[in-house]
Computed example of a mutant assay.
Amino acid sequence: MKVRFSARDGAWDEWAPALRAALPEMTLSRDGDPAGFDAIIYAPGGDITDFTPYRNARLIQSLWAGVERIVGNATLTQPLARMVDPGLQRGMAEYCTGWAMRAHLGMDRYAQDGIWRNGQVPPLADARPVTVLGMGALGQAVASMLTAIGFPVTGVSASGRAVPGVSVLPVAALDQALARAQILICLLPDTPDTQGLLDARRLALLPQGAWLINPGRGTLIDDAALLEALDRGRPAHAVLDVFRAEPLPADHAFWSHPAVTVTPHIAAETRPETAAPVVAQNLRRVMAGQPALYLVDRQRGY
C-alpha cells in the first residue's frame, strides 16, 4: 500500500521509522501523485489542505485525538479516523492524576517559610468527589486511574454509556455534576456544543474551593468568566493546559493570576512508539476491506 504522510515540519524524522517498523508492507512518502495513494496519515501543520485530488484514499488517519482542525474541511470526503493511542491515554491520565493529587493534598499550602502548619490535614480520597467532563477514551483512562486511588468519580458523557466504577450522567445533568465537583477535569472535544460551555453561570455552580483542571480544549471555558470566578474563589484554582490562542500571549491575564497555573499544552502527546501500531492496525483493516476503527462522526465533530 502507498501512504502519504502530511504533518508539521520535523514530524517526518520522528514518525517515519516507527511507522515503517509497524507496517513494513507500506510505502510511506511525503509527496507524489495524489491519485496514487491508498491512505493519508495526517496531523495539523502539514501541507495538505485540499483532499480532493486524493480520490483513491480509503482513509485519512489522524495522529491527533482531536480533529476539530480537519473535520470541517469541505474537501474531505474520505473516511476520517481519530487517534486512540494507549500512550496518549496514559499520559493524560498521569497529568490529570498528578494535578488532582496536588489539589487534593493541598500541596501548595506548605510554603517553606518556617511556619508549622500541622493543623491542615486533607481528607482521604474517597471524601473528595471528582467530576470528569467527557468520557471518551481519554476520560475513561483518567477516571480509571483516579478510581484506583479511591476518588469517587462522576463522568459526564454525551453517549451516556456506562463506565465501570464511575457514575455517568448525561449532558442534561451537567449542573448536578458541577455542583458536586471538588475537582473538575475537562476533557471534552471542541465542537459547537461545547464552546463556552463553562460560562459564568456554570462556574458559579462549583463548590467553594474547587479546583478546575483543563487539558481538553481552550474553547470550553469563557476566559473572562473564569478570571472573575477565580477572584471569588469558585474555583479556587485553575490548571490550564490548553487555550484559545496558542502559544498563550505573554500579556494574557492567566500568566499573572495567582490562582492560575499555566502549562504549555503538554498534558498528553501522541507518541510514535505507541501510536504507530494503532495506525498500522487501521490501515491493514481498511486495505482488507474491513471498517476502520475510531471513525469520526462528522455531525458530532469527533
Rank of each mutant, 00 (worst) to 15 (best):
A125R: 09
L80I: 07
D297H: 12
V168R: 14
A181P: 12
A288Y: 09
V278C: 05
R298L: 09
G301R: 10
L169E: 14
A93K: 03
Y42I: 00
Q78W: 01
V153I: 06
S6T: 03
L88V: 09
A229N: 01
D9R: 15
Q290I: 01
V286F: 01
V286A: 05
R202M: 02
A288F: 07
A253P: 07
L283N: 12
P291I: 06
P207S: 10
G106D: 04
V3G: 01
L76M: 09
D13W: 00
A127H: 13
A111L: 15
S6F: 03
A200Q: 13
M83I: 07
R234I: 14
R20A: 11
Q61E: 00
R234D: 05
R102S: 06
L226W: 02
T49E: 06
A141E: 01
A181Q: 11
A204Y: 06
R244D: 06
G155M: 11
N282M: 00
L88Y: 02
G66I: 07
H104R: 13
G91N: 00
A179E: 10
M92A: 14
P122L: 01
L88T: 03
R30S: 05
Y42E: 07
D33S: 08
A204Q: 11
F151S: 12
L240I: 06
G150E: 10
P235F: 06
A225C: 03
F5H: 00
D85L: 04
Y110T: 13
A173M: 15
F37V: 07
M145D: 10
L187N: 08
G136L: 13
R4E: 03
R161E: 15
M287Q: 14
C96E: 04
T263Q: 05
A43G: 13
P44K: 09
V260Y: 03
L212F: 00
A253I: 02
G32T: 08
S157P: 09
K2P: 00
M26G: 06
A11Y: 04
T191D: 05
F51I: 12
L59D: 02
W12G: 02
D31L: 02
R284Q: 15
R285D: 11
I185K: 04
P17D: 05
H265C: 11
D13C: 00
T261H: 01
